[in-house]
């Protein structure tokens, strides 16, 4: 079994289709939805983690390609811009999982471990420099 993170963009034409339901039913996948914004008649986003066999995952990707869904594989919908980060560390007490952490105590360098991010978005609310952004 492998786990992959992915976020999906649904254009208006695809928002009323039960795509996630079919992913679970047809390919025996375990799906953990971090965050979703899918409204009928509007474009939508879905950020999730998919667990299944490699074969099933490949089949699931092929299935998704049959729709107009845009697949952003391998990344979460929260982005940390290392170039813009001032390493003040204000985010550290607001990130509940330690995804944002001090990589080097001596130089107090802040780093982001994407795997630990649960997309709670508190970094976006708290960062004075707009370093963290969300795809939706």
């Amino acid at each position: 079994m492998i786990t992959k993170k992915v976020y999906l963009y649904f254009p208006k034409s695809e928002t009323e289709k039960p795509i996630v339901c079919e992913l679970i039913r047809n390919f025996d996948l375990t799906i953990n939805i971090f965050r979703a914004k899918v409204t009928p008649e509007e474009e939508g986003y879905l950020s999730l983690e998919i667990t299944g066999t490699e074969e099933h995952l490949e089949q699931a990707y092929e299935f998704l390609k049959g729709f107009d869904v845009v697949i952003h594989a391998g990344s979460k919908a929260v982005h940390w811009d290392s170039e813009r980060c001032t390493h003040c560390g204000n985010c550290l007490t607001h990130c509940p999982t330690g995804a944002l952490h001090l990589a080097d105590q001596a130089t107090r360098t802040v780093a982001f471990t994407e795997e630990k991010c649960i997309e709670c978005l508190s970094c976006i609310t708290n960062c004075p420099f707009g370093v963290c952004t969300s795809a939706f």
Binding site: T86, H87, C88, G89, N90, L92, T107, T109
Partner: peptide, 23 residues
């Protein structure tokens, strides 16, 4: 250190100033 004890409870501490950039 990122944490201090105040009135018997542990309080998480962070900075608004950047030691990294100052260095």
């Amino acid at each position: 250190s990122g944490q201090v004890e105040l009135d018997g409870r542990k309080v998480a501490v962070s900075s608004i100033s950047s030691y990294h950039k100052a260095l």
